[in-house]
Each structure stands twice: as C-alpha cells, then as structure tokens.
C-alpha cells in the first residue's frame, strides 16, 4: 500500500514560490492500478517522481507498506520500484537482453537466473526471446520498445511500479493493443501501479482508481464509475467531458447487462439471422449502443464465443443499468 500524507512540492526560483504539488492525501491499495489524471502542469508527474525520490518532498510524507521513503536509502528504494517512462528510456548502447537485465545485474543476480528471467519476461510480453536477445533498441518498433520498457521495469519483480505516460507516444491502434496486453499482464503479476496519463479514456480503461489533479491539488479520487457518475466539482466535470454517461458505458459489457436483467435473455424471440448488426458478450456497452444506433430496426443480435446467436439487444435493455433513458442517450450521440 502506498500512502500520501500531506505531500507538497514547492519550487523556489528567483524568490518566487511555485507550488507544484499541494497537500495531497490519498492511498493506493496493494495490487491496484491508480491513474494520476490531469492536464499538463497539474503536478501528476511530479507526484509520481516523488515516490522514487527523483523529486524531493518539500512537505509531508509518502509511505510504502508503512515505511517512510525518506528513511530508506534512495538507491535501494529505486531498485525496488519499477520505472517506465514515455519514450527513449531504453539505453541505445545495450542490447535488449542487457537493457532488461540492468536492475537484476545491479542486484547481483547470477547469469543463469538473469537469463531465465529474460526469457520469462519476453514470453510474457509476447516477444520471441531468441530473436531479440542480441538486437539493439533502434531496431525495434515503438510498440516493441515500449514493451521492452515495461519488461525492464518488471525485471526484478518489484512490488510497486511507476509508469509515466508509457503509451503516450504510440499511435492509437498500437496503444489500444498495448493497453489490453498491459491489463492481461497485470492480472498475473498484480503489482501496485501508479500510472500517469492525460487521457481520460485510458484512465477509465486501465484504472482501478483514478486521481484527478489540477494545479497541484487532488480534485477527486475514486473508481472510474464513481468519478464518472459523481464528479465532485466543476473542474472534474469539465475534464471528464460532457459525454461522461457514454464513457461510463465502456466500463460494462453486454454480458453485465444480460446478468443484470434476466429478461434480456430472450432466446425464444430470436428470429433474426446474424447480420452485420451484432455484438458479442464482451462488447462494451458504448460500442453496443453504436451498433444499435446504426441498426435500422434498433436491435442487435448478441452472439456468444462460438458465434452462435445468444439473444437480442434493444434500446430498452439499457434502462436496466444506466438509469438514463435510451432516447436521452441517443440525443447525446447525435
């Protein structure tokens, strides 16, 4: 668990005081992804960098599992925290294997153990260990480089990871793919992750918890659903956008909808053939809505994993979950 108590950072330059982080209080549970969200200059990156003491705390304290980080040796602290930055974090003079093994080597792991760890990590990332072992960072695509960056941060199996917009410089398709991969990996490794982002969609998708910052102050912290359904103030409301009810739909899938309202399961009524207007059980409700809107009948066929028809989805099903009348949703979209 990471606890921030009254954490502040004040920069002094030519007699002027600038408060970059202003009395932040919050905690992040073990195994949780907490996304620090906010516009640039809001202090989210500064706060992140205070955790591994790249930035000195002016006031307050940060504790990891009850231990004040100020009391720990900064070098050892950093080696026990995985760190991923936006881009160019890989060392160009080292091969992929050397890059991944930087921290294990500093920790004095023997060659055999390092080799096994390299293989394990590359397989976890979906990259062929032998193919990349002797290659250099510049030979890899941006997406591959970023995967290596994540693998390197995971190398010594640190309980805590800090990620500073790791997918920020990638194109949308690759970013989408890496976000999925990242969630899949997190399911296995269960790290406590602080993740800086300026992208609300990314935050909703990845975060177990979202902390929104503005001008150094913590505006609101909560689950994506809490933030979207109950924004605390004007700033949060503006930042998450007027389509927040639509964004909320991405948190749920068709399956959730069917589970909630048993009557959604109307196999008997199923006469429609599978046409282009279909959704799967895993489709999120935002995309499902888009299909419904495109469908001339206002209905979409639900198919299961084996592509067999499972039921029919209509606008009225949405009433079950969202509390928002479908016609209202329609007016927002158009």
């Amino acid at each position: 668990m990471i606890t921030f108590s009254n954490v502040s950072k004040i920069y002094e330059s030519t007699g002027k005081k600038v408060t970059a982080v202003d009395h932040v209080n919050m905690s992040v549970e073990e195994g949780e992804i907490c996304v620090f969200l906010g516009p640039s200059g809001c202090g989210k990156t500064t706060l992140l960098r205070m955790v591994n003491r790249l930035v000195q705390i002016t006031e307050g304290s940060i504790e990891i599992d009850g231990k004040d980080i100020q009391a720990l040796d900064s070098i050892e602290l950093r080696r026990s925290i995985g760190y991923v930055i936006q881009q160019n974090g890989l060392f160009p003079n080292m091969t992929i294997e050397e890059n991944i093994n930087v921290v294990p080597k500093m920790l004095g792991w023997d060659a055999g153990k390092r080799k096994n760890r390299y293989k394990e990590l590359m397989e976890m990332m979906g990259l062929n260990p032998e193919e990349f072992r002797k290659r250099f960072p510049w030979e890899l695509s941006g997406g591959q480089q970023q995967r290596i960056g994540v693998a390197r941060a995971l190398a010594a199996d640190p309980p805590v990871m800090l990620m500073d917009e790791p997918f920020g410089a990638l194109d949308p398709i690759i970013r989408d793919h890496l976000q999925n991969e990242f969630l899949r990996i997190q399911k296995d490794v269960k790290k406590t992750i602080l993740f800086v982002s300026h992208d609300i969609d990314e935050a909703i998708r990845l975060g177990d918890k979202i902390a929104i910052f503005n001008q150094g102050q913590l505006m609101q912290v909560g689950t994506p659903d809490q933030i979207l359904s109950d924004p605390k103030n004007e700033f949060v409301r503006d930042f998450i956008g007027s389509d927040r009810e639509i964004k909320r739909l991405t948190l749920l899938t068709v399956k959730d909808l069917l589970n909630k309202g048993k009557k959604g399961n109307r196999k008997s009524n199923l006469t429609a053939e599978i046409n282009e207007f279909y959704v799967t059980l895993d489709t999120d409700l935002r995309n499902a809505l888009a299909v419904l809107l495109a469908s001339p009948t206002g209905e979409a066929v639900i198919v299961d994993q084996r592509n067999q028809p499972h039921g029919i989805l209509t606008f009225t099903d949405y009433e079950l979950l969202t509390g928002v009348h479908p016609s209202k949703l329609k007016s927002i979209v158009h």
Binding site: L54, I75, E76, R78, N93, M94, V102, L162
Partner: peptide, 24 residues
C-alpha cells in the same frame, strides 16, 4: 530521458556514467 531512466532504476552516479552516459 536516458539520465532519468538510469537514475530512476537506481543507478549510482558512477554506474550511470560508466554504463550509460560515457558509452553514449
């Protein structure tokens, strides 16, 4: 960014110079 990554990963000043900055 290179320096940041090196420090953030827990390299000492000497390790950072020897393994990253001087080779580059």
């Amino acid at each position: 960014n290179m320096r940041d990554a090196a420090i953030g990963m827990g390299m000492t000043t000497w390790q950072r110079l020897r393994k990253v900055e001087i080779p580059i």
